[in-house]
Design a protein around this nucleic acid. Structure first.
Lengths: 197, 197
DNA sequence: GTCTATAAATCGATAGAC
DNA sequence: GTCTATCGATTTATAGAC
């Protein structure tokens, strides 16, 4: 048994928050690849090693900077594990489960609303393509992955805007099952179907 | 009885056009909320009250600003005239011709950037569903028109955001023909294919 | 002019001292 | 909790061969 702790905890000052703020600023301004861990550390006034100490890898830092309640990489595991067959449907199931949960939807909507400004656009691009779809395409071993994934993105982003942001009926009220049944063949075609050209 | 009017008419010189140009410039550069009626008036070199006199509310001004080159009902005629068969492809051809023309794209992008705020959302909803897709569904005599049209909207809006706003590659650089070939079957399915439920 | 080889700089990440 | 030192990989730039 440990004695009840008194006074100031060993915990961090505001260093962690400073790093997070610096990361958000950097990622928003310059995008993921052009924002180095070192530059984040410099902005926060700390050493680069501290960034890793608090947040792990650079990917982890980015996810933390987005302030999401779910770790996309974890949520997308079931999508990837089943292989290409039925990946469209599984992707949609994860998609609606995340977006229909208010706890996760609200931070994501905040991200989407940043679409008006260049920094928000950069964040969205990296968030959607790099953190969410990129790993999926890699794990599925897609051919022409960038092309296919940008098609998938175009449909998913459209659903986000029309269903969750603009709340256009009747799409906004469609059940999970109907939504999955409607879009699964389309996404499956984008992921694995023939491509023109 | 009023005496016959003499001298200079109350009518406008080119003031109306000047206001419209100023509005277009402001909305395209800064979006709806950050473009004040006062700033539009100032750019046009007139009084703010004149803006309201010519165009009514700020929303009206916005709509007028983006209704410049193309009349949606006119542009969509070829889509509607051919009937349901091939309507997806014809809709896409009109879509890309409008969005790949900078003259029409810039004001439309200003509209899209308004999705961050409720007023902009309302304008976008009306713009997409009532002005563009609504008449199409009506003329084609679609069954379950609202449902089908919200599906079509979800894909078109997604293309707008990913290709024209975020400029995600390779979708952003895809040729007209490839884009049409890719999305036409999907839109055709939304318009005329089977629906779950 | 084009391609290859190599040098220099930068980056992500880890281990260990204080 | 914080920093120094450092490894291994990637990228960028330069030089030289053909």
């Amino acid at each position: 048994m440990s004695a009840p702790r008194r006074g100031r905890r060993p915990g961090a000052p505001d260093t962690r928050a400073a790093i997070l703020a610096a990361a958000r600023e950097g990622f928003a301004a310059s995008g993921f690849s052009r924002t180095s861990v070192r530059s984040v550390a410099a902005t926060a006034g700390v050493d680069a090693a501290l960034v890793h100490h608090y947040f792990g890898t650079k990917d982890d830092l980015f996810v933390a900077a987005l302030a999401l309640r779910v770790d996309p990489r974890e949520a997308l595991l079931p999508v990837v594990e089943g292989g290409l067959d039925g990946a469209g449907e599984r992707l949609l199931r994860v998609f609606v489960s995340v977006w229909d949960d208010e706890e996760t939807r609200l931070p994501l909507l905040a991200l989407v609303r940043g679409i008006a400004e260049p920094s928000g656009q950069q964040l969205l691009r990296d968030g959607v393509m790099r953190v969410v779809l990129g790993p999926v395409g890699e794990a599925l071993g897609l051919d022409e992955a960038p092309r296919r994934l940008s098609l998938v993105a175009s449909q998913l982003v459209g659903i986000v805007v029309v269903r969750y942001l603009l709340a256009v009926e009747p799409l906004a009220s469609m059940t999970h099952d109907d939504l999955v049944a409607t879009y699964a063949p389309v996404l499956q075609g984008y992921l694995g179907g023939p491509l023109p050209g």
